[in-house]
Design a protein around this nucleic acid. Structure first.
Lengths: 136, 136
DNA sequence: TACACAATGTTATAATATAACAATATTTAA
DNA sequence: TTAAATATTGTTATATTATAACATTGTGTA
């Protein structure tokens, strides 16, 4: 097997990374760091830093995304996400349900968007707010 | 003068709201809450809560916006913003310069965007990341 | 084996934000 | 104009989110 510089790619998760990712995937909604911590203490994770370090790596790998407006983390719902660079979510302001949007139209539009100086951006985060079906 | 229910609209700012807004407007870059606090202590504002309360109101009024990925606040650069509901920024990952994007094409696209369930969102926040001209 | 590097464990602390309560000012409406 | 309603302020304490610093252990590879 060719390894080269892939030491840190998708296939290999460390122990703490697995524990944290499992926890986030079990929840179908975003989890906050200290809520993760509380829920994984029986697995031997004792300190915030252990959680934050795992979160950082998982975000880098694109396994999870941070919902910036909520300081919370959600599992990637696009199986294709290898890297966290272009994300879009809808957030219900009533029940806080968060859904990852995967619209190729939207991602193409944003990936090709140029600002006034002609600058393009390959990395973005978009959060839509509103009321979900149930809450309307 | 007709007042009705306009008690809290653009024209009237309270003392602390003015102080905080002035400070943010003087800075041409986003300011963090505790940096604002430090800089307005000579004006009589002593506690974090005084700053956060002013920030909340100013955000509601659309006078300032929160840069969620940075936990920082920037003065609205679109004179037209009356309400903080649809914002877009570019953020330089090197020097942290933030610019509010005002593109009618972008805002129209996002305002008319529908997700898979046909849901539209009148409120959103978009943050683009990259390198600004100087940093490239 | 030994080197490099990633991951872990641990304590302490920094940075961001809100709760709770009392008081004062301002606006609205009878 | 006065009383009620509402917005704002002041203040102390505390909750929540996140990182610094340092020592140690594991893992893959030269």
């Amino acid at each position: 097997m060719v390894k080269s510089n892939m030491s840190q790619k998708q296939e290999h998760l460390s122990k703490n990374q697995k524990i944290v990712l499992d926890m986030i995937e079990k929840s179908n909604q975003p989890m906050k760091a200290y809520s993760i911590l509380f829920n994984v203490q029986k697995k031997g994770i004792k300190a915030p830093l252990q959680v934050y370090r795992a979160l950082d790596k998982l975000v880098e790998m694109g396994k999870i995304h941070k919902i910036e407006s909520r300081n919370a983390f959600i599992a990637c719902q696009n199986s294709s996400c290898q890297v966290a660079k272009a994300t879009a979510f809808s957030i219900c302001e009533m029940c806080e349900k968060v859904t990852e949007i995967s619209s190729s139209g939207l991602s193409k539009y944003l990936a090709s968007f140029k600002d006034k100086d002609g600058m393009k951006y390959s990395k973005y985060n978009l959060e839509f707010f509103g009321l979900c079906k149930k809450c309307r």
